[in-house]
Write a protein that binds this DNA or RNA. Sequence first.
DNA 1: CCCAGTGTTATACTAGTTATATAACATAGG
DNA 2: CCTATGTTATATAACTAGTATAACACTGGG
Lengths: 136, 136
Amino acid sequence: MMFLIKWDSEQPLYLQIRNQVVEALARGDIRPGDSLPSIRTLAEELAINLHTVHKAYQLLDQEGYIRLSRRNGGIVRDLAHPAQDFVEGWRDRLSTVLSEAFAQGMTSPEILQHCQQVTQEFSNKTHHQDEGEGVF
Amino acid sequence: MMFLIKWDSEQPLYLQIRNQVVEALARGDIRPGDSLPSIRTLAEELAINLHTVHKAYQLLDQEGYIRLSRRNGGIVRDLAHPAQDFVEGWRDRLSTVLSEAFAQGMTSPEILQHCQQVTQEFSNKTHHQDEGEGVF
DNA sequence: CCCAGTGTTATACTAGTTATATAACATAGG
DNA sequence: CCTATGTTATATAACTAGTATAACACTGGG
């Protein structure tokens, strides 16, 4: 799991981390049962503060993506179904993003094509079962 | 153009306004050439501060959705093509939103169906040409 | 038994953002 | 000239983001 901090981004650091974990999950780069790096390890690796990483992990835990335990650190959960109350908020966010494209003059076919392309990137879960990153 | 402020939302007020304008634009509720309410008018109507509305309008102007002039206030621009540098950032945001759905266990067909539904809402531009809101 | 490595909590501080409140300025139309 | 438009300038309070230290609680391994 590679993290990359964009220091010139307008996005808060803890959100960048959160998003990268979620995208890695969607992409299949990390899977249920896998461990995230320890809070301190990742903080040092990215040269940022422990609490910033902690905040990202707490958010991921709260949203249901991982389970954060005092013992094993952050472990990716198995989400067969969306967490409760997820879909409503998610559709609102989807609406907002798609509305931007319409308002900018993109056409429905154009927009839907982007959706399909992105979707294919994520469902391309060509994945090696036995490749590090796991709990040991 | 009806605005609705959610006081319990986590979203900043100025972003709520910005998003509602963009969605109204996508939905066809407002069209190129239309005037937005004056900053002071809208501020009073929503019982919020003038500067908060101004910030929303400035953002909309900066993003290319409206033109803000000292003379006529905020006027919706005609965006036949996306503003430069729009698409790159937009696709990133789309990726983030769609990745959340995947990570929550939704399937590709499910997700694409949502995209199509939202898209249809926006392309349903059943619109009355001569209905107020215009410049006068 | 202790040590090292987990997350967790507490406190403090700086900087930036959000929202409000007042006031004033600049411009042009009626 | 008055009025309505956006614009700019301060100031202030509350909150957020990020950093810095320090300490606490737990537990697996040596």
